[in-house]
Lab assay of single mutants.
Amino acid sequence: MEVRTIKVFTTVDNINLHTQVVDMSMTYGQQFGPTYLDGADVTKIKPHNSHEGKTFYVLPNDDTLRVEAFEYYHTTDPSFLGRYMSALNHTKKWKYPQVNGLTSIKWADNNCYLATALLTLQQIELKFNPPALQDAYYRARAGEAANFCALILAYCNKTVGELGDVRETMSYLFQHANLDSCKRVLNVVCKTCGQQQTTLKGVEAVMYMGTLSYEQFKKGVQIPCTCGKQATKYLVQQESPFVMMSAPPAQYELKHGTFTCASEYTGNYQCGHYKHITSKETLYCIDGALLTKSSEYKGPITDVFYKENSYTTTIK
């Protein structure tokens, strides 16, 4: 009895394709271990004539594949690729409408935090270190965002349907971005203890939790000093293409032309909904596939993004 075979390709990165001759009487799992086709788990399936010449994702289970996976995804987590594939199996079914010149995501599976993050990423200057993220990001900007969303979920250790947080998501993504040249110098002034300067680099240099107003941050924000008295913390120097200011959701007025974009969060910790506000020729609110415009805006804002380049204080 002759062994019926077909020729397929296996890959971990969709760049390096490895030619395989597979036995049609055995499952993919018996031949390769966990195997995925377009995100779908085909591990328990036997090869079919229609699979001839198709590319299958496999887990990096030998040295060659491990090197290829690390170079593309910059992670050695053995569960990463499987999590990416199972997320992709959902995100490829989502709709990605162009809204006001940006790629958004039609609401499904509690994905409003991903839509808000995706919209924000198209408006701030950011370059990702893992080629996987950078490639998928370019495709997302062009309207094909399924891979990018699935990668975000995998890097953030999230599953489809789980509630997510924009600030946490951005923080994970910033860790995989090139923020080497970003720098922030802060000064804390206390009447009792004097003053202390701190220099922050990388992710810490672009994120701040405690106030939404970048102007206020430049002037000074009140913080408790270690001595128990009130101290003032203010920005001395900022070198970065953008800054992200966050605070627990509270009524906040966004003035046209003073910011790049913002995240609105309605609801409580267990259950809520994100919308995205962007400042173009007027203010726009993007909620999944829905767009509304207004000249002014007041609502429960939790993150505001500002364009920056270089700032030095005039406070002496």
Rank of each mutant, 00 (worst) to 15 (best):
Q123Y: 00
V160S: 02
N178H: 09
I6S: 04
D63H: 09
F174V: 04
L119V: 07
C193T: 03
Y214D: 04
L121T: 07
C156W: 00
R83C: 06
V21L: 13
P224C: 12
V42H: 06
T35Q: 06
I6N: 04
L59P: 14
R184A: 15
Y137E: 00
D77Y: 00
A150C: 00
E308W: 07
S310M: 14
T292F: 11
H51L: 01
V166T: 05
L212A: 07
N49T: 15
Y155A: 00
V243F: 05
D109A: 10
T232K: 08
C112H: 08
K95P: 00
D287M: 05
N111L: 00
V243N: 08
E71Q: 10
G257A: 11
V221K: 07
E281R: 09
R83Y: 00
M209S: 15
H176G: 01
K54V: 11
L153M: 10
I286Y: 07
G194T: 05
Y36C: 03
C182D: 08
T292Y: 11
A247D: 05
Y96V: 03
D77A: 06
L81D: 02
T313M: 15
G39T: 06
N309M: 11
F148S: 03
M209R: 06
V99M: 09
V58D: 00
A231P: 03
H176V: 03
A154Y: 00
I286A: 06
P97V: 07
N129T: 04
D135Q: 14
T292M: 11
A140I: 09
T103E: 03
H276L: 04
A150V: 01
Y137G: 00
A140V: 14
Q238D: 04
L119W: 04
N157E: 08
P131K: 01
Y28K: 00
V185D: 01
N61K: 11
E71N: 15
C285W: 06
H51N: 04
S246C: 08
N14A: 13
Q196C: 11
E296T: 14
L254E: 06
S294L: 12
P249I: 03
G272I: 05
C156N: 07
H276T: 04
V58Q: 09
L121V: 14
A231W: 02
P249E: 12
Y269P: 09
T226F: 09
T232I: 14
M26I: 07
S86M: 15
T192G: 12
Y113F: 08
Y57T: 08
L173W: 00
A146F: 01
I277Y: 01
A136R: 03
M26L: 14
K280L: 14
D38Q: 11
K229I: 11
C193R: 06
D62K: 10
C112L: 02
Y138S: 10
V236Y: 13
V8L: 00
L179W: 06
D135H: 15
Q270N: 11
D287Q: 10
H18V: 08
H48D: 12
T116C: 12
L153Q: 02
T198N: 10
Y137W: 04
L290H: 14
S104A: 05
S310H: 13
G220T: 04
N100Q: 13
V12S: 07
L65T: 15
Q222E: 14
M207K: 07
L65S: 12
A140K: 02
Q134Y: 04
T258F: 08
L200F: 11
D63W: 06
K92T: 13
Q238N: 03
G194R: 08
V22E: 01
N129Y: 13
N111V: 01
D23L: 08
S295A: 14
L114W: 09
Q98C: 12
V22L: 11
A150W: 03
C149L: 12
I277E: 05
K191W: 09
Y72G: 06
T198W: 13
R4D: 11
S240C: 03
K316T: 15
W107Y: 15
A40D: 14
L17R: 10
Q222V: 09
H256I: 15
K54F: 09
E264S: 14
L88P: 00
S181H: 15
L151F: 01
E168A: 13
Y73R: 00
Y306T: 05
